[in-house]
């Protein structure tokens, strides 16, 4: 089975994230860049399926600046076999629809895949729809927010878990799956894995190499524009008192004053 996993590099959610003043895109200089946590679960899921099948191939697909190669290396050191990386100045500032279209083209450079596995929601944009958008563009079923996944023959089934409850989904391959927080515990790369990753093939593509026209991507051609952005003034810390045996009563008093109880 050939599995494509979508990987994105994001600003670490444990660091302070900023937008650039000039074009309101993510200020990548100011933040620590890491593979998005949920993508590690996507890679893990792909590896589990490959191991269960006894053979197969896991191909990482990523779009992002050159330094996203660190995220790709992480996935390869976990055990993925190869990668396709679209890095081009021109993709900077692409919107969700453009991103989905570009990812679809990138997936198209991988021959004979059976399954695409992505994370359910990136921690930065939280659009949480790109996997389904890619599936729609590819003309294949989308089985998203999977916390359990199995493949039997040519059928994929998932247990989808969201705030709306549990939905059991099934579809024929090829298909797109996105995994949730509870899908698995990603493995740590072994020393051997880290060394092996350095030799694994990465297909570095620019727009032309991926067969994407410059007019299809980028800030200037985006279907939506951010017109202004500003950090929210930091919330003023309110009153802080040390409990002297009447702390609970003091909170109650405060809540009554605010008409909250």
């Amino acid at each position: 089975m050939k599995i494509v996993t979508l990987v994105k590099q994001v600003a670490d959610t444990y660091s302070e994230r900023k937008l650039s003043d000039s074009d309101h895109t993510l200020d990548r200089e100011g933040t620590e860049a890491v593979i998005d946590e949920i993508n590690e679960r996507a890679v893990e899921q792909a590896l589990l399926l490959k191991e269960a099948a006894g053979d197969g191939e896991v191909v990482v697909v990523c779009m992002g600046p050159d330094r996203a190669s660190d995220a790709i290396r992480k996935a390869l050191s976990m055990g993925a076999d190869s990668a396709v990386h679209l890095s081009d100045e021109a993709i900077h500032g692409s919107c969700a629809v453009q991103t989905a279209r570009a990812l679809t083209k990138l997936i198209g450079t991988v021959e004979g895949w059976d399954l695409v596995i992505a994370g359910n929601s990136a921690s930065d944009g939280q659009v949480a729809a790109v996997p389904a958008m890619v599936a729609d563009l590819l003309g294949v079923p989308a089985l998203t927010w999977a916390n359990e996944l199995s493949v039997s023959g040519s059928t994929v089934t998932v247990k989808r878990e969201t705030d709306d409850g549990v939905t059991h989904l099934s579809a024929e391959l090829p298909a797109v799956v996105s995994v949730g927080e509870k899908s698995n515990e990603p493995r740590y790369p072994s020393f051997k894995g880290i060394m092996a990753a350095k030799k694994k093939p990465v297909n570095n593509l620019d727009l032309a190499g991926a067969g994407i026209d410059g007019s299809e991507v980028g800030l200037a051609n985006a279907l939506v524009s951010v017109t202004s952005s500003a950090p929210k003034p930091p919330k003023q810390a309110g009153e802080k008192v040390t409990d002297e045996g009447d702390g609970g009563a003091k909170i109650a008093e405060y809540l009554v004053g605010q008409k909250l109880i």
Binding site: D136, G165, T167, L169, A171, E172
Partner: peptide, 12 residues
């Protein structure tokens, strides 16, 4: 296009 089929639901 081909779609995923709902085979069951469980309320929250």
């Amino acid at each position: 296009g081909r779609q995923a089929t709902v085979t069951g639901r469980e309320p929250i």
